[in-house]
Nucleic acid binder design. Sequence first.
DNA 1: CCTTACCTGTCAGTCACTGACAATCTCGTC
DNA 2: GACGAGATTGTCAGTGACTGACAGGTAAGG
Lengths: 199, 199
Amino acid sequence: MANTARAKSGLREMTRRAVRAQIAETAMTLFAANGFEQTTVDQIAAEVGMSGRSVFRYFPTKEDMVVGHMDEIGEGLAEALAARPLDEDPWTALRHAMQPHLDELTADADTNIAMARMLDATPALRPSLLNKRARWAEALLPDTTRRLRGPTRTRELRARAIVSSALACLNVAVDEWARTGGTKPLDGLLDTALTAVRS
Amino acid sequence: MANTARAKSGLREMTRRAVRAQIAETAMTLFAANGFEQTTVDQIAAEVGMSGRSVFRYFPTKEDMVVGHMDEIGEGLAEALAARPLDEDPWTALRHAMQPHLDELTADADTNIAMARMLDATPALRPSLLNKRARWAEALLPDTTRRLRGPTRTRELRARAIVSSALACLNVAVDEWARTGGTKPLDGLLDTALTAVRS
DNA sequence: CCTTACCTGTCAGTCACTGACAATCTCGTC
DNA sequence: GACGAGATTGTCAGTGACTGACAGGTAAGG
């Protein structure tokens, strides 16, 4: 009980992570096959080999089986942004911070495009998707505020506007990328979007 | 059955609209008093004097009792944008198109601030709020595309980026306006946000 | 008056999600 | 190897949003 902080038992956390991944994977398979709303949680539970109740001990909601990993992406963006030199202006810093995420997307292009298409085809999932992306803004806000000059009074407002707009560009670029099946390079789409906004 | 198009019986449609408004109003009152999730649909139905089943004949979901009217706002924005001269660039046209909406918000400042605060305090409502706002972009997209020059190939992508960013600025401004209780003028907040993005 | 279409209440059912309890398992410790 | 604490699980029971089906009532049109 001494070190409440981290490391845990190690194994507990590892198996828990594995089970979580297993649930998410079979859930995605069933969703892709039968549709999100047509698949019940009990079906997923049966497929994994556990009770429906226990599934909810790994995922707070059914939707989180799809978008649950997106919180980590937000943290990744924030870390990448913090790693940029402090004298860089917000826009270029944000653009560079997005690069690792773009690389991850293009690395598993097939998987990510398939997932993006499922999200697009399932209206019930769009709200939670937008919600996750909105939380990315929260993670990027403090660092962006620090990069701004001018009146302190409006600094947070301006930072919010910039972060929200930059993420909007990212959304637009990724959507277009998935919609066209990865034909066009993701980097170029994002740059086009960002340039259009700042012109 | 002849004219399927419009006009209907007139009276039917009027009473229907009135009942819908009545439900939304009492729902908002109960939500403000007891919270959104603590208020059941049956409670609302009892207060209005009808069965819980019938409430769902006026609103597809419980959340729509709060954000249902937002579709009209999107249409209003689109109309205002269409009324702007065609040689106006996207940003200024969008800014002017938002003005009527800003005026509506400030006219019923107390009501709208109270609603915005309730939305902010109720995490369960944020997804559907974001969803409605995302649909505004769809309504503004065609007209904005028409105002763009440059390569046709990237025109829609750039239009999406601009519309999404402009709406993001609107969100940020309105949130800040509601958060500070209407102290700062909404126009100025929006201009600050837009300027910060385009600088 | 009568037909037609709509509105409504009631009943029954699905499904996501939650709390409580007891059985089981794992781990660190003696 | 035995033991006790804490975590994990299945089961049961319940809430609440939402849906389909059926039947009675009411208003519009001929």
